[in-house]
Design a protein around this nucleic acid. Structure first.
Ligand SMILES: [Mn+2]
Ligand SMILES: [Mn+2]
Ligand SMILES: [Mn+2]
Ligand SMILES: [Mn+2]
Lengths: 219, 219
DNA sequence: AAAAAAAGTTAGACTACCCTAATAAAATAT
DNA sequence: ATATTTTATTAGGGTAGTCTAACTTTTTTT
């Protein structure tokens, strides 16, 4: 039905929020090209195909919107990606910085039966190893209404429920800092000087940079 | 390193026994084309590339032999294929006629770490759901010295340890006959008239056609 | 409103993989 | 030893996906 390449374009558009509602709004050719690390000229050609397949809507020189069919398929690929990441993490004991690259391949395996059995085998998980929600079979995904640590007020207590940046670089840094999903913490102070955030967890006080705080989600 | 297409060519050559020793000997272009269901002209072009990559040896108008590098990679792909089939069968409860098609996709996922962890997760299985041996990390595969039911003598008692034909059509037929891997049976009679084989298993007598008998392996 | 910058498109080329039709070489049969 | 058949190769063409360089349209700045 769809090639791995087409699926990656759809996923990138979804990530950029190219939805008629709920998202950041339509994306542009250059923006999409940047996201995919592919040249705009190439993206332009692929968009023609995606339009013809009814997966995106775009007027000449205009912005790109995912159609309902496009959105549904993007979510299906994201569902597979996150289920595979969960499998790698829970069953094969990959670390959370190792799962993404392999899931990037596994997400393109075509077999509805496989996806559903995998989901069952994993016990119908609701989030992947990075705290991202896993869409259900019908493409429903719980809306993410999570605040970053940077925008939570002083005194707030909660758990780390997700990360915004899934790069191995960032995740390994978190491991080094001793920060992982589910960790309970309290924000003790926002430091005005450089935006650093002071927090306390399990009786230990620590300071993280603003950049780290912006990429951590808390409940 | 290698594309999925290249891997399928190597696997087909291995299946045809294009080894310098142990196999049926070198394969021809047409034979390989038939195996892959691709036209000889196309195969001819791909062979040029495989030669340049040092995976096969072939003189102009000559037969095709896998090099050591080619053989090793073919076995690596077969290893992945059989491990995935085992995973689908053991963990996701696929039936033995459903596993092959999905494994045909999964075998091309690139990650040595994944293969090794999967093998560990499965408990280092020695055979896949069809009784075919699973090569180890170093590419060693126990030689298959198994006899078909058709060539075993009357009175022989043993277990079904494998099938020659992995098609869903054949495997579903076996299910219908109540024949599965590990089943103990005794050959009671070879019927000269049409080559059918009469056998007895768990106190039940049954007759299978010659074609079925030729595709069942016993120990 | 004109100039400059940014965004989007077109043209032409390349690799990977596939095809059919025609041709050349090798193997087999007469 | 030819003739026939089989096998292998070449020539030319197609789709998918990528690139660079040049060009056009839209947006932003002055
Ligand atoms: Mn991921
Ligand atoms: Mn992908
Ligand atoms: Mn198989
Ligand atoms: Mn394959």
């Amino acid at each position: 039905m769809f090639t791995a390449t087409e699926e990656n374009y759809l996923k990138a558009l979804f990530r950029l929020g190219a939805l008629s509602e709920g998202g950041k709004g339509p994306a542009g050719t250059n923006e999409l090209a940047l996201e995919l690390d592919i040249r705009p000229a190439t993206v332009n050609g692929m968009l023609k195909k995606l339009r013809e397949k009814g997966l995106v809507e775009q007027r000449r020189y205009g912005k790109i919107l995912l159609t309902e069919a496009g959105r549904l398929h993007a979510v299906e690929v994201i569902r597979k990606h996150r289920l595979w990441e969960t499998f790698l993490y829970e069953k094969l004991h990959f670390t959370w910085d190792e799962v993404h690259d392999v899931a990037e391949q596994l997400e393109h395996i075509r077999s509805v039966h496989l996806t559903d059995r995998l989901e069952e085998f994993l016990g119908y998980p609701s989030v992947d190893p990075h705290g991202d929600p896993i869409p259900d079979k019908e493409g429903r995904m719980p809306p993410e209404v999570r605040r970053t640590l940077a925008e939570s007020e002083e005194g707030h207590a909660g758990r780390i429920v997700g990360v915004c940046d899934n790069s191995a670089e960032f995740l390994q840094y978190l491991d080094r800092l001793g920060l992982s999903l589910g960790l309970r913490l309290t924000i003790t102070r926002h430091i005005p000087f450089d935006g650093s955030v002071e927090l306390e967890s399990a009786g230990i006080r620590m300071i993280i940079t603003r950049k780290v705080a912006e990429n951590l989600l808390v409940d």
